Simulated assay, not measured.
Amino acid sequence: MPKTIQFIKSAVLAKDYPVHNMAEVAIAGRSNAGKSSFINGLAKRIIAKVSSTPGKTRLLNFFNMEDSYVLTDMPGYGFAARSGDEQREWHQMIETYLTSRENLRGLILVMDIRRSWTEDEEIMRRFSEREGFPIVVVLAKADKLSHSAKLQAIAKIKKVTGLSAVFATSATKKEGAAEVERYIFENWIKE
């Protein structure tokens, strides 16, 4: 059964963010990491558009997750075709959101399980540490690896980052999203 998840609005500026009393969870990741597919996995239906062209999301997109919390989908990083001005605007929009949103409870960082941890991911990890909010790493597209390779990838990210909350997910096989949501609910949302 589909969840009652609704798109609230898109915004760039803080004055346009939705006003509500719920906790917020931000979701970030490289363009084409599988962010939209992961969001759709949480929703159990298509609410975020999956594009074959990386870098389509240019705004902060807010979703009401069953009146339990708000998921904020941030534009993907690392998309080289953006101009310097666009990249600066992206950094400013993301930094403003992450530093000014009082009800932000944590960050889900989505990355392709076949990729290595890069400076881009490390910047997000350090930023969340500096700002004092927790981070979960979601290794998407886990169906692309064997079971043992998947376990090795999880162990490698845990070792490189020092983070314990690392999950493998597959939108294709509909695996992992429920575990991530259970973790963030138990650790970030539930009062």
Rank of each mutant, 00 (worst) to 15 (best):
residue 4 T to L: 07
residue 9 K to T: 15
residue 11 A to D: 05
residue 11 A to K: 01
residue 12 V to S: 07
residue 13 L to S: 11
residue 13 L to W: 11
residue 14 A to W: 06
residue 15 K to W: 06
residue 17 Y to H: 09
residue 18 P to K: 08
residue 21 N to D: 14
residue 28 A to S: 13
residue 34 G to Y: 01
residue 36 S to I: 07
residue 36 S to R: 03
residue 37 S to W: 00
residue 38 F to I: 07
residue 38 F to S: 08
residue 38 F to Y: 09
residue 38 F to C: 12
residue 42 L to F: 10
residue 47 I to W: 01
residue 47 I to P: 04
residue 48 A to I: 01
residue 48 A to P: 00
residue 48 A to L: 02
residue 49 K to M: 09
residue 50 V to T: 15
residue 51 S to F: 09
residue 53 T to S: 10
residue 54 P to G: 04
residue 54 P to W: 05
residue 55 G to W: 04
residue 56 K to W: 01
residue 59 L to E: 15
residue 60 L to F: 03
residue 60 L to E: 00
residue 61 N to I: 02
residue 62 F to K: 11
residue 64 N to F: 08
residue 65 M to S: 01
residue 67 D to S: 14
residue 69 Y to R: 03
residue 70 V to K: 10
residue 71 L to K: 04
residue 71 L to A: 05
residue 72 T to P: 01
residue 72 T to Q: 00
residue 75 P to R: 05
residue 75 P to S: 04
residue 78 G to D: 08
residue 81 A to Q: 14
residue 81 A to C: 08
residue 81 A to Y: 10
residue 85 D to V: 14
residue 86 E to M: 11
residue 86 E to K: 13
residue 86 E to L: 08
residue 87 Q to N: 11
residue 88 R to W: 03
residue 93 M to C: 09
residue 98 L to S: 03
residue 98 L to Y: 09
residue 98 L to E: 07
residue 99 T to V: 06
residue 99 T to I: 08
residue 99 T to W: 02
residue 101 R to P: 05
residue 102 E to F: 03
residue 102 E to V: 02
residue 103 N to F: 00
residue 103 N to K: 15
residue 104 L to V: 10
residue 107 L to I: 12
residue 107 L to R: 06
residue 107 L to V: 04
residue 109 L to F: 07
residue 109 L to A: 05
residue 112 D to G: 05
residue 114 R to H: 08
residue 115 R to S: 13
residue 116 S to R: 12
residue 117 W to Y: 14
residue 119 E to G: 11
residue 119 E to N: 15
residue 120 D to M: 14
residue 122 E to C: 05
residue 124 M to L: 15
residue 126 R to I: 06
residue 126 R to F: 06
residue 126 R to N: 14
residue 127 F to S: 00
residue 127 F to W: 01
residue 128 S to A: 15
residue 128 S to V: 00
residue 130 R to E: 13
residue 132 G to R: 06
residue 132 G to F: 10
residue 133 F to I: 07
residue 134 P to T: 03
residue 135 I to H: 00
residue 136 V to K: 10
residue 141 K to P: 04
residue 143 D to L: 12
residue 143 D to W: 13
residue 145 L to F: 09
residue 145 L to C: 05
residue 146 S to E: 06
residue 146 S to I: 01
residue 146 S to K: 14
residue 151 L to G: 11
residue 152 Q to K: 15
residue 153 A to V: 04
residue 154 I to T: 01
residue 155 A to T: 02
residue 156 K to G: 02
residue 158 K to S: 06
residue 159 K to N: 10
residue 160 V to I: 10
residue 161 T to L: 05
residue 162 G to M: 08
residue 163 L to Y: 13
residue 165 A to D: 13
residue 167 F to K: 03
residue 168 A to Q: 02
residue 168 A to F: 00
residue 169 T to Q: 00
residue 169 T to S: 06
residue 169 T to E: 03
residue 170 S to N: 02
residue 172 T to K: 14
residue 176 G to L: 04
residue 177 A to R: 00
residue 180 V to A: 00
residue 183 Y to M: 06
residue 187 N to S: 12
residue 188 W to I: 06
residue 190 K to F: 01
